[in-house]
Design a protein around this nucleic acid. Sequence first.
DNA 1: CATCTGTTAATTGTTAACATCGTACAGCGT
DNA 2: ACGCTGTACGATGTTAACAATTAACAGATG
Lengths: 200, 200
Amino acid sequence: MSIQPKTVREQVTNQLRDDLLSGRFEAGSMLREIELASRFGVSRGPVRDAFIQLSHEGYLAYYANRGVMVRQPPNPEDRKFITSLRVEIETHVVTRGAASVDPGELKLVEVSLDRLKAACDTGKATHIALRDVEFHEAILVACGGEDMLGAWRQLCSRMLLTYTRHDNYAQTYREHFEIFTPLADGDPKATVAAIKANIR
Amino acid sequence: MSIQPKTVREQVTNQLRDDLLSGRFEAGSMLREIELASRFGVSRGPVRDAFIQLSHEGYLAYYANRGVMVRQPPNPEDRKFITSLRVEIETHVVTRGAASVDPGELKLVEVSLDRLKAACDTGKATHIALRDVEFHEAILVACGGEDMLGAWRQLCSRMLLTYTRHDNYAQTYREHFEIFTPLADGDPKATVAAIKANIR
DNA sequence: CATCTGTTAATTGTTAACATCGTACAGCGT
DNA sequence: ACGCTGTACGATGTTAACAATTAACAGATG
């Protein structure tokens, strides 16, 4: 059931994003196309594409003719604000779309939840953070929020860089399970309430 | 004083964005790398980069191995919501940073305002919409809101596609002038108030 | 007649070579 | 010693050729 990325660009982008999230690269350091290209065993092209993409997702800062730099996490004040915007977007989309979720889309949400559970069992904070985001993203897609996805991802990328909330993995899973249940029942109000309890 | 883009990619991206905004391409139609590359007299590489970038800015939808499609403008309900988020971001950034604006940055805001005025004089709605956005962007940069820029741009790109508010060009300029004045005085509260009166 | 399959043309994905830009640094002049 | 300048190096920017994928279609097959 795993959705394997087809193109090299996607693979490089995903791998790089994971590395960024797990703190493999120091914030403020420059990334070199050649070095990463040889590490992944590909040419500079896809790495370049990934740089552009990740710059737009907010992980990297692009400097013409000089390369990309790993961005610093947002300060606490901005982080708080970003979180509130994120909640607003999810609330908006879920409120509008939770009552008419396609069964197929819902199934994908369930798959995401299962993966999150698996990640919680392993106890690796990095993986949990990723699965967490993927679960919320699946919800947005299920509720027909594709139009909001770009802006939402921007905000999430800035947050993930400071993700440190997973001290109790069992609870992390439970919170998300409690988002899924009302969504499966087509209850927007309860879903939104669960989301607001989860994101903080 | 005009900031000429140095790289071909930037030029192609900007030109394409302008074309998209002025409705040169029909919503839902596919864009081909070769066709645009030959139109701009460059190779496919930079066009490809521009496609990735504009996809992330929200103008295009990317389909692997099949190309990019011109996106539809958001529905009125989403548009309204997007507007409110945009106001929130600008309010947040200006509130925090308007009191300590660097003189150099402020000068750039003024330049943007002058350009907006020039666009208003020409009466071309497309140009006005672009300059409008650039003015607001300059304010965000001046107030130290680089961290929010990505998310903000995402939202703006979705709005611009339905920009039709310019029936009175003189007033458009005046509204922005009344944003600039309190900003130059370092008055966050009044600046925010003027912004809220302008964005709707 | 509907469906499946193999071919084909068109388009995107990837690569490696070449062009250009920016930085560091040695050498010169003051 | 200080500052300027030119040069060399390493990096990104761009290009064109080649590979892989997709969608459409003709023809075979049930």
